[in-house]
């Protein structure tokens, strides 16, 4: 039976495959973490920066969002080394995904802040709140609720995009499975397995997102 052989093959290669899964989780996790932090900065500059700052950040964001992640990864790996910044494939990959993530999170944050009615800021001003307090007590809590579903979506996109790091030789889940395939020729079963694991990771992320969403929903 091919299925049984496939399980045998996965079991035999469990350690390299688990390594691959760990790498996928680490790459995605770090990219999302740094990308989100950077993206919040991008969103704030797009919302509150001066004209010139806004212009440059807009170019940054549009450029990154308009470039295929695939190209970004190659660029970070090959071009950065040309200008003397020697990153390992692993680092370059995370860097590229982080940039990609930051541009999307930046747009999400800007959109969420912009969607808050001006009356909220005016009410805050009318009771003497400073901009800082208005931001943290009034705007941010509302924006966060708005951001969460789209942010979760971006996170799952990053997980999927992390497979592209196999191109520059990072042994994440997909590449580790491909290595097993090259020995066993069980491509259908093993690709199916890899797909299932990706589905599982993203399923957990989305489920967790939905739980948090429900927890922080404003009662109506």
């Amino acid at each position: 039976m091919e299925i049984v052989r496939a399980f045998d093959a996965i079991w035999a290669a469990r350690w390299p495959i688990l390594d691959g899964i760990a790498n996928t989780l680490l790459i995605s996790g770090l990219s999302i973490l740094f990308g989100t932090a950077l993206g919040v900065g991008v969103g704030l500059l797009l919302s509150y920066g001066g004209r010139i700052v806004r212009f440059f950040v807009r170019v940054y964001s549009d450029f990154l969002r308009g470039t295929p992640v695939f190209v970004l990864i190659l660029a970070c790996f090959y071009i950065l080394s040309v200008i003397g910044l020697q990153l390992t494939a692993f680092q370059a990959g995370i860097f590229a995904l982080m940039l990609f993530c930051s541009s999307h999170v930046g747009e999400i944050v800007r959109g969420a802040l912009q969607a808050i009615p001006p009356g909220q800021t005016e009410a805050a001003k009318s009771i003497g709140l400073t901009f800082r307090t208005t931001f943290f007590s009034v705007l941010l809590p509302q924006a966060l609720r708005q951001i969460l579903p789209t942010w979760v979506n971006t996170a799952t996109e990053i997980v999927k995009a992390s497979t592209l790091l196999s191109i520059i030789g990072v042994v994440e889940l997909l590449l580790s499975v491909q290595q097993v395939i090259s020995r066993t020729y069980l491509s259908l079963e093993l690709y199916f397995f890899a797909g299932f694991v990706f589905f599982l990771i993203n399923f957990v992320i989305e489920k967790a997102g939905r739980i948090v969403e429900r927890k922080i929903a404003i009662p109506t």
Partner: peptide
């Protein structure tokens, strides 16, 4: 102090 036409309460 100001009261607005559309209340502008903080919804959260």
């Amino acid at each position: 102090g100001m009261a607005f036409q559309h209340f502008n309460l903080f919804p959260h």
